[in-house]
Design a binder for these strands. Structure first.
Lengths: 259, 259
DNA sequence: CGGCACGTTTGATCTAAATCATGGTGACGG
DNA sequence: CCGTCACCATGATTTAGATCAAACGTGCCG
């Protein structure tokens, strides 16, 4: 029914951009600062050399297509810097972003032979790439790695259910508030806890936010403006807002809101 | 913004209804017909007695609350007959059904100490219940069990992403078509493949369908009527419709639709 | 320095689906 | 057998958010 929206993907997949980082030594994983946040923590310190060999670290510029929906599922990624957006599309171009994978998150897991979703970098991203056979070997060799992955997928599923509640039953206002609130929960940018309000980083564009919340860019923009007008948030920078009242935001997000 | 809808839960949790089945012998799992459809298949034939001891089979009448959102996560269930609905709610009563767990599906997995969702039987349901410590022992003792569970959760996540696309970007017509189509994919009720059209069983009420698709009962009702009027489906039974044109239904579901 | 491209904001209008309202049907119990 | 209750269908009206339409800033490049 809705007419096909204009194509929004400003980026094209560039194979030559998949350049491995220069210094890929065997100590890489041991020194990795994001290890404890990720599945890699399921592998002991002594065996980390194996992990380094099983994976390759890549640096990807903003707007790089990492996964194209429907292509063979050959790799699994672990994000060590930046933000990746995951999405599904309809033939006419309508798109739903199903999640943003930040530092410590994995992506690319699937049972089917092909990916059922696409993935594209939001900003400059660093990932560790595991090819499928290597991943499977890690799973069988390191039970704690598998256990950790199971836990991560379980969390991911719980988040997905929360997002279904948002998409199916929340108002635009509640959706935007939920989004901002969830973005300030993990200590991603824990700058000043509440010196001048908590800073929330929004590396993605309004289009991405809209496609994540099941809204249009106009509605997202208007709603953010309204929250600004009523002093729940401040900041005119498009990629970083400041939350003035966390409680207020949470109330709106959970639907306990007057207006 | 939307006023609290009237309470829709016609059922109340009845502790006394959690009665274990009479004949719980050690051979139960070996004879279980739904084993190969479920995580239990990760355990070898010889060790099935252990599985029988780790679980308890229960028969639950329609409308039984199995899991109450926010309560301690003490059990994990495997559905062996019937259909269970999983849902999340907002304080004012708005509800989103996040999935229907049919035969072979598990429910109740979580990392947090409490359930982040509720679960209620749609019709008469049989489940095998594992208490949490028992489940964890199975996971560590039987790698194939854990691997199978990881695969199930991964599938569940893919389904959740598909549902996010539906909730965020599809029209009412596309949502209903997608629902009916997805319900006929698994050979749940594989009666006649296409003798007089494929039969699809809908054990849940219109309210449940609406809460699953992020619509109102009126819209669901009208949309089903429209599909009937245009001969894509037939049947006046509320809990079972017949798909006359599978292709047509799939086209509508995926958004390639004229009207 | 001017112009173009991109992302964003804001206003006016439209519409798909929600809400409000009513009637029908079948199951169940007294 | 009749009243009640749960569920479903359908018509009339309203509305939240989509769509259509400018206009504004900012950064980039010739």
């Amino acid at each position: 029914m809705p007419p096909a929206p204009p194509l929004r993907t400003q980026s094209i997949p560039l194979r030559r951009r998949f350049t491995p980082d220069a210094g890929t030594d065997l100590q890489r994983c041991l020194l990795c600062e994001t290890r404890e946040k990720s599945v890699c923590n399921g592998i002991g310190d002594t065996e980390l050399a194996i992990l380094s060999q099983a994976s390759k670290r890549l640096t990807l510029p903003p707007g790089t297509t990492m996964i194209e929906e429907g292509t063979p599922a050959v790799a699994f990624f672990n994000v060590t810097a930046g933000t990746v957006k995951l999405f599904k599309s309809l033939p006419d171009g309508r798109r739903q972003i199903t999640g943003f994978a930040d530092v410590g998150h994995f992506l690319g897991l699937t049972n089917a032979g092909t990916y059922s979703f696409g993935a594209e970098t939001v900003n400059t991203v660093q990932v560790c790439r595991f090819l499928r056979p290597q991943l499977e070997k890690l799973l069988t060799d390191y039970p704690l790695f598998e256990r950790r992955l199971l836990a991560e997928v379980t969390d991911e599923l719980a988040e997905a259910q929360e997002q279904m509640l948002l998409l199916g039953r929340k108002t635009a206002r509640e959706r935007v508030a939920s989004f901002l609130f969830s973005r300030m929960l993990p200590p991603a940018t824990p700058s000043q806890p509440d010196a001048e309000g908590c800073l929330v980083s929004l590396p993605m564009t309004r289009v991405d936010i809209a496609d994540y919340l099941g809204l249009t860019i106009e509605t997202v923009s208007r709603t953010i403006s309204a929250l600004r007008r009523e002093k729940t948030i401040t900041g005119t920078d498009n990629h970083g807002i400041r939350v003035l009242s966390v409680n207020r935001l949470q109330e709106i997000a959970s639907g306990q809101d007057s207006r």
